[in-house]
Write a protein that binds this DNA or RNA. Structure first.
Lengths: 126, 126
DNA sequence: AGAGTATATGTAGATATTCAAATATAAGGA
DNA sequence: TCCTTATATTTGAATATCTACATATACTCT
C-alpha cells in the first residue's frame, strides 16, 4: 500500500477541461482530434491536458500510425479510488509520513500564535 | 443528484498543506492554532488553507469564544465520495451538462485538426 | 473602556498554471 | 525523397495561487 501523493492526483483533476476529457473518455477510447472536436477546443489544449492526465496515471496511451489513442486506465483509477475511500473513511492511523504532524498535534494546546511562540522559544513556530 | 463541479472540489484538495490539514482533522476537531502547531506552519497559512477547505464544503466550523474550531464535515465528504465513485465506475450516461460534448463525440471522426477545420468551415473548431 | 488574545484579511512578491500561436517531430503515402 | 497529416513541444503573455508581513476584527477579562 504505497503512500500516494494525493495533492498531485487531485491537481491533475482540478481543471474543468480535464474533467470533461475524462468524461468523454469514459464513453470510449479517443484520439486527440476526437477529443478536440468533442470539447470544441484547440489541438494544443487537447494534447496538453491529455498529457497531464496521462502523466498523473489516469490514462493509457496506444499508438496507431499517426494517431495517439487515449483511454481511461480503469485499473489505476480504481486503485486511486480505493485509496481515497480508505483515507476518508478511516483516520489513516499508522501513516509514517504524517506521524510528525500527529505527534505535534498530541502536544498542541488551544492557545493562539502569540502564546505558542513563547512556549518553546522561537523554534516552535516556523 | 445535483451535478457537482468536480474540478472545484479537486482544486481544494490539490494542495499538500490542505491534505495534511485534512489528515490532522481526521484525528479530531482542531482550532487554527492547533493546526498551525501540528503542521508547524504560520498562522496565516493555517487560517487561509482552512478557509479554502471550509468554502469547498469539506469542513464544519464551530465558534467557541476566541476559538474557531474546524472539523471534517463527514456527511458532505461522503456525499462527494459517493458521487465520485459513481462518476468513475459508471459512464455518466444521461448527464445533461455534458450531452453536447458527447453529441459532438458521436459525430467526431479520426482526422486531425487540419482536416477537421475544413469539414465544417471555420466554425467547427473554436 | 482598555489590554490581551485568537483568527481573519489586505497587500505584494514569488511561483505556478493555462492558453494560443508558431514550430518541431514523426508516420504514411505518392 | 517530398508532401501531407496527427500530435507534441516551445514560447510568451495573461491569470491564478500561495505565502509572509502587517493590520484589522472579534471575543474575553479586568
Amino acid at each position: 500500500m504505497a503512500m500516494r501523493n494525493f495533492a498531485k492526483l487531485f491537481k491533475a483533476l482540478s481543471d474543468e477541461t480535464r474533467i470533461r476529457i475524462l468524461k468523454v473518455l469514459l464513453e470510449r477510447e479517443c484520439c486527440v482530434c476526437e477529443v478536440m472536436q468533442a470539447l470544441d477546443i484547440s489541438q494544443t489544449r487537447a494534447s496538453r491536458n491529455l498529457a497531464v492526465l496521462y502523466e498523473a496515471g489516469f490514462l493509457k496511451l496506444r499508438k496507431d500510425g499517426l494517431w495517439s489513442l487515449y483511454s481511461i486506465d480503469r485499473d489505476t483509477m480504481n486503485e486511486h479510488l480505493a485509496d481515497l475511500v480508505q483515507v476518508v473513511t478511516k483516520a489513516l492511523k499508522g501513516n509514517k509520513a504524517l506521524e510528525q504532524d500527529r505527534e505535534r498535534l498530541r502536544k498542541a494546546v488551544r492557545v493562539g500564535p502569540s502564546r505558542a511562540e513563547k512556549m518553546h522559544g522561537e523554534k516552535t513556530i516556523a
